[in-house]
Design a protein around this nucleic acid. Sequence first.
RNA 1: GCGGGCGUGGCGUAAUGGUAGCCGCAACGGACUUAAAAUCCGUUGGGAGAAAUCCCGUGCCGGUUCGAGUCCGGCCGCCCGCACCA
Length: 867
Amino acid sequence: MATERYNHRETEPKWQAFWNKAKSFESKEDSTRPKYYVLEMFPYPSGRIHMGHVRNYTMGDVIARFRRACGYNVLHPMGWDAFGMPAENAAIERGVHPKSWTYENIATMRGQLKSMGLSLDWSREFATCDPSYYMHEQAMFIDFMKAGLVERRVSLVNWDPVDQTVLANEQVIDGKGWRSGAAVEKRELAQWFLKITAYADDLLSALDHLPDWPEKVRLMQKNWIGRSEGMTFTFELEDESGKKLNEGLTVYTTRHDTIFGASFCAVSADHPLSKRLAESNQALADFRKEVAALGTSEENIERAEKRGCALGIYARHPFSKGVRLPVYAANFVLMGYGEGALFGCPAHDQRDIEFAIKYSLPIIPVVAPRGVDPATFEITTEPYVEKDDDQSVLINSEFLNGMSVTDAKAEVAKRFEAAGIGKRTINFRLRDWGVSRQRYWGCPIPVVHCKTCGIVPVPKSELPVQLPDDVKFDKPGNPLSHHPTWKNVNCPSCGGKAERETDTFDTFIDSSWYFARFTSPADKEPVNAAAAKYWLPVDQYIGGVEHAILHLLYSRFYARAMHKTGHLNADEPFASLFTQGMVIHETFKTKDGDWVLPSDAVQVNGAWQHAKTGEALIVGGVEKMSKSKRNVVDPDAIIAAYGADTARWFMLSDTPPERDIEWTEAGAEGSWRFTQRIWRIVNDVAALPMGVLSDAADGLALRRQSHRSVAAIADDLNNLRFNRAIARIYELSNAITSALADKDSLLKSDTLQGAVTEATQFLVLLMAPMMPHLAEECWGLLGNFSAVVDTPWPQALDRFVTVDEVTVAIQVNGKRRDEILVPKGIDRAILEGKVMQLENIKRALEGKQVKKLVIVPDRVVNIVVGD
RNA sequence: GCGGGCGUGGCGUAAUGGUAGCCGCAACGGACUUAAAAUCCGUUGGGAGAAAUCCCGUGCCGGUUCGAGUCCGGCCGCCCGCACCA
């Protein structure tokens, strides 16, 4: 039969127009139906979509369409994370205005996403650079200020010398700026901070109530928050001559049990004590400079030996009268953690022992493995760090001797607290979130600096504080602070002359609440309470694991801050999180290390060479698609050549969604061939009589298979096992193909025809979430008048899904020797009798003694024999 | 260094402690065709055998179990995250 090929070029735009006209994906609150909010991490409008987007949005779309078919009221919105540095770089490099650059990119990418046939509610679209979005961000910031969640303080910050802006701790990767890759410097600047640390404990403990988040992400957040329990206490200080100083030295420790092993104290080079003493101590001043120059990059830290500079003062041991510990400024002590000061116990800490060896300080073991003679227990070069507190005992520690580590900690804490010199403290690694950026293309921070009134928030009636359009990028730094007039305003409080804040927000603020704005994108409040109550939390959130800490931690904090200020009624934004793998592709390079397009690489006699120049090529490995490695595949080209359905199908096939998927030309062609195969099957079936549905024998096997497919694929899609669902769709289509191949039987039996028709209808509905355009086209061809998008998920009938016959494997001593088809739930004795009649089993048992018979109902019979 | 994950055919992968390798890709053989493409049918973990069938096989070593890819212990390898956090 000469069926015309399926033509995606006509079909796909046709159905996209149909859905658009029917407003199929626009959603409203509807209390009569269960809601389901599917969200994929919204894109940065960098220019064009890439394959990673295709994979991410395809997964979300399958879930959205599937849930829709199952009767859920689905919200599936899309927008743009539109502020950020690349727009400014384009302005600097090409003279394009960041705004026009951004909105043009959005237009391009919107068109590309539409060509994918995504079931998105475009009526809710917004970009974070729209004043109608960021005005609410500004309003909420003012509320956060009033609620005590905002602080402005001078602090040592991460300065990116290339982007000329401050970065948050989370945005410094291996000592380099996350975007520019430049080595980050330390600078002191007045900055705005959001007090995320106020929620450190809650952000940590609530992780236990997010069972549908990947364990990996929860662990990463847990480590990032870094809770530790210890003590803060204060040493008395004395000078060289033993005269007591007026001030003390406060340190943080988690090992107060080792206090008798202390042999020195160390403070950060940036500690106030170190700074002040440096004024009269040249060696110390030089040391401070040296430490600052070292920077924060990973290599430097790794290589730097533990070094210090004696301050010439001493800490008095709190328990041992007359014992004094020299105080150093040391390069391994961080100002940002604890008190920026510590006591060193070399015997039980790697850093401390390195330091002690370098400066010939005593190494006093105070903890020993249980059962070891304290008199002979020595530590010389490696510290003893016990893994299990209760396997160790205290030694050389006066009143602590013989105690476990746990008991010793409790005892020391009790004594410190009784003496009023210390208290138990909980410390976090998490720092407050510095949100000031010295950039133009971001949301203006809505405050005014007034000489008389200080910092004054902009009244809400005057929001948004809009970005000026007339800016110049002719010199480094922030164009807003160079703008001639923008920052000059009257103080909202006293009316006198004042200046606007010229810093803008970190763009991670924009993406910290967009999920909530999608529930009511046009509301006059940041979030409409009723809409948020109906839709939130997001039921399924999907994105890359690279946001495990940054975006996902900030959003969790933001939900809490919005809750506190009455903008939201929940703390956790995302009920279920899925992190998908990357799209990777093979790479090639020349001997000189130049990357070569995979399309230019050909294999000749087993060796790779350049198709045009003939130059020998080195296979560079399969890596994440990136422009620099020239292994990018453009989604537009794929959609043009094969169609969106093929691209979507490929992205879901074979590889489990959390793993990296390798893009291959052969795989794409395989997916394309399958679309054509579906088309042929459907055309063949459409030409058959419909037949009748019955339980008659000749159609039964097929009906069982198709009903089981319905149930199994629903289960797979509920659990995001797209690759399994696709394998089952192949199985079903193989079964239909086999039935069609037996023309004689098919033409004779109307029940078989009925089974084939039903199976094919199911096939179309089952694949519809993945290949929506093809499904619509096939659905019409099969004689349906409705659209697939308005058709519910098919019903799997129990009597076909339930199995009545099972294949039981027969093992002898655990080795499979035969199998037998028996009614489900067969009587054990009858089964045993049948098994013993099998030729293979008789042979295997010959001359052996049956010792035991293990029967796992409907599964396995294991005959245990001896000689 | 600390934490986590993963090792299964030529490749991507599948397998509630119960027949290891579903499904796909690639490859090979065949049908159709003047020919090719497309399509359809078949074979495809390794080894022995004419066949029935048997032996071996899920990174390595050991354990638990009637039975281990799966659970436990110890190695090896790869990947990811954090990293001077006191």
